[in-house]
Amino acid sequence: MWCGVSTKVDFNCDTMISRMFSIYLVLCYLLTICLSCRLLVPSELLNGCVFDPMIISVSHAGFSINRDNCNSVIAKHVFAEQPLVYYGRARSDRTYTLMLIDPDYPHHANGQFYLHWLVTNIPGEFLRQGLTYDIGEYIVGYQAPDPPVFSGQHRYMVFVYEQLEHEIEVPQPDGRAKFDPISWMESFGGEDVIRGPIASIGFKTEF
C-alpha cells in the first residue's frame, strides 16, 4: 500500500515538474522573440558611426568630430553650445531632418532615447555648408549633453534623415525624455515621408 502511494506521488511530482519545465521553456522562447523583435527596431540608432559620415564642429573650442574620431570620449563642456553640423553629401534639391539622441539615459526602456535636438525642413545646401542657428524648423531646441552623476558614459548620436517631401509637418514630442523616434516618425507617415538615417556621427561623454 505504501509503495503504491509513493509511486503515485512520485508520478504526480514528475509530471508536474515536467509540465512546469515545458511552460518555462515556452515562456523563455516567447520572451526571446519579443526582445529580438524590439531590438531590431532601435539597433541602427545605437551607433553614430555606421551611416554616411558627417562632421560636427564647435567653434569656441576649436574642436570637431568626424569619422576618424567618431565615438571618442569628449568632455561635456565642449558641446555646451549648439555645434555646427556638416553633411557634405546633402543635396541642394532636398530637405532633411536632424536629431541628437542619447540611448543611455537612466530609466529609459529599450527603443527610448533622451532627445537633445530635433530640427526638420533643413535645406540641403545649408546642411552641406554647415547647419547654424535659425535654419530649418526647430521642433525641439538644442540641449547640451549632461549625463546624470554615477550614470557612466553616455553615447550621443546625431542622425540625419532625408525628407521625401520638401516641407513636412510633424507632431511635437511629448517631451525630451523617453522619446521613441520610430513611433514619432510613423505618426506622420514613416517611410512614405522620411527615410534614413542616411548620415550620422557620434561621441561619448560623462558627468
Score class of each variant (00 low, 15 high):
61 A>T: 06
51 F>N: 04
12 N>H: 09
46 L>G: 03
119 V>I: 15
104 D>M: 04
16 M>H: 06
6 S>N: 05
80 A>R: 14
89 R>Q: 13
75 A>N: 13
12 N>S: 08
25 L>H: 03
56 I>K: 10
84 L>F: 13
4 G>V: 04
67 R>A: 06
36 S>T: 14
55 I>T: 07
105 Y>V: 05
75 A>Y: 15
17 I>M: 10
6 S>P: 00
124 G>L: 08
92 S>T: 14
15 T>L: 11
118 L>F: 11
4 G>W: 03
8 K>G: 09
14 D>E: 11
113 F>R: 00
103 P>S: 09
68 D>H: 02
51 F>D: 03
126 F>T: 10
51 F>L: 02
57 S>L: 14
21 F>Y: 06
87 Y>S: 09
88 G>N: 13
126 F>S: 12
113 F>K: 00
57 S>N: 11
12 N>V: 12
96 Y>N: 08
71 N>F: 01
13 C>N: 11
116 H>F: 03
65 I>Q: 02
65 I>T: 02
49 C>A: 04
62 G>T: 08
83 P>R: 05
60 H>K: 14
64 S>D: 07
16 M>T: 09
107 H>E: 11
23 I>A: 09
53 P>W: 05
52 D>L: 09
71 N>H: 01
102 D>C: 06
89 R>E: 13
93 D>F: 15
125 E>N: 13
58 V>H: 04
31 L>W: 07
68 D>M: 01
30 L>I: 08
40 L>A: 07
79 F>Y: 13
105 Y>R: 06
54 M>L: 12
124 G>A: 08
117 W>V: 01
120 T>V: 15
58 V>R: 02
31 L>R: 10
100 L>V: 11
46 L>N: 09
117 W>H: 11
103 P>Y: 13
73 V>L: 12
87 Y>E: 07
44 E>S: 12
29 Y>V: 15
79 F>A: 14
54 M>V: 03
50 V>P: 00
21 F>D: 04
76 K>Q: 14
109 A>H: 14
82 Q>P: 00
98 L>E: 11
79 F>G: 08
15 T>E: 08
86 Y>K: 10
119 V>K: 04
48 G>C: 03
19 R>V: 05
116 H>C: 04
114 Y>Q: 06
125 E>D: 15
126 F>E: 15
92 S>D: 15
6 S>T: 09
99 M>P: 00
86 Y>I: 07
105 Y>A: 13
54 M>R: 01
19 R>C: 04
20 M>K: 13
102 D>Y: 00
116 H>S: 06
52 D>K: 11
31 L>E: 13
96 Y>F: 15
